[in-house]
């Protein structure tokens, strides 16, 4: 198994020793959990060790994937990084925040929320988690802009139009409620909103899961282009190797809350080492 321990490589996001336990957070909860025990649930305390000892760095312009089946802890990791929930332990640093010297886990919730405006953005599987469906597409995108101080109505509309164009949503739909949009279109608006303030770090949680295959392919093409053009550092969480293969260069495999293997994405697909990774790849090949 290979490990990535870049010494002098620039990073935009750094996660170290991240852990999230639901229930009794004492060390006793760890015993008997993890892939070798076949469970994330502590036999003694009943706590769920959703994620433990997760570490990685993502460079500007790089996309890292996290793959695993449902319940493996991948979305927990993403929610901890996004600040949607508190980590039990570990460090999360953004290069854009005090040059990476601050552990985001030590910030007050209000300060943490502010980072979501400019420093880190997330796109969720469910558009309703990232958008207000009862507001227009333009209005949704205006939100993060006004929050960081945009005031000119024309300026905001122009930026919103630019972003919609970028994600290939017809401008004629700008003033329609997002509720009237198709699934793929909602996802595109969510992506436009996430990119509004050009964040250096973008988190994507199952960005195409639940969409029809052809619609999903269109959204993937869009994301792939955006990742290449923008120089954003991305974390892509998915259970689908097709998505990971298309979008990422490196990948972590998670099972029962632990990282069981990491490597270059094509290496993970062609020469997986861990029995669980081999199982996932075999299943993906059908």
């Amino acid at each position: 198994m290979s490990t990535h321990t870049p010494q002098s490589r620039p990073w935009a996001l750094k996660v170290s020793g991240l852990g999230r336990i639901y229930g009794d957070p004492s060390p006793a909860s760890l015993t008997g959990t993890g892939p070798e025990h076949g469970t994330a649930v502590s036999p003694s305390t009943g706590a769920v060790v959703a994620a433990w000892d997760v570490s990685f760095e993502v460079a500007p312009g790089e996309a890292l994937g996290i793959i695993g089946e449902s319940g493996s802890g991948k979305s927990t990791v993403m929610r901890c990084i996004a600040g949607d929930e508190a980590a039990t332990t570990g460090g999360i640093a953004l290069r854009s925040v005090a040059d990476g010297t601050v552990n985001l886990c030590d910030l007050l919730p209000s300060a943490r929320r502010r980072l979501r405006l400019k420093d880190i953005a997330a796109v969720y599987q469910d558009p309703a988690a990232g958008l207000n469906l009862d507001v227009t597409a333009g209005g949704n995108i205006a939100d993060p802009l006004t929050a960081v101080g945009w005031r000119s109505y024309d300026g905001i509309r122009q930026r919103a139009a630019e972003l919609l164009e970028r994600v290939e949503v017809p401008l004629s739909r700008m003033d329609d409620l997002v509720r009237t949009f198709s699934g793929g279109m909602r996802q595109r608006v969510q992506i436009a909103k996430a990119l509004a303030n050009d964040p250096p770090v973008l988190l994507l949680d199952e960005p195409t899961t639940g969409l029809d295959a052809s619609v999903a392919a269109g959204v993937l093409d869009l994301l792939r282009g955006l990742l290449e053009e923008t120089g954003v550092a991305a974390v892509v969480v998915s259970h689908d190797f097709g998505v990971i293969d298309m979008l990422t260069r490196r990948v972590l495999v998670m099972k029962h809350g632990r990282v069981v293997e990491s490597g270059l994405t094509d290496q993970l697909l062609e020469d997986p080492q861990h029995p669980y990774s081999q199982q996932l790849v075999a299943a993906a090949r059908g």
């Binding site: 290979s2 870049p6 490589r9 760095e57 790089e62 298309m246």
Partner: peptide, 25 residues
């Protein structure tokens, strides 16, 4: 390290195979 290997690939080592990896549209 993986990240270094990835960098080397793009820049200094090329690979053309008999099988074609899935290409984006």
């Amino acid at each position: 390290p993986d990240a270094d290997a990835a960098e080397l690939r793009g820049q200094e080592i090329g690979y053309v195979s008999q099988f074609l990896r899935p290409q984006p549209r």
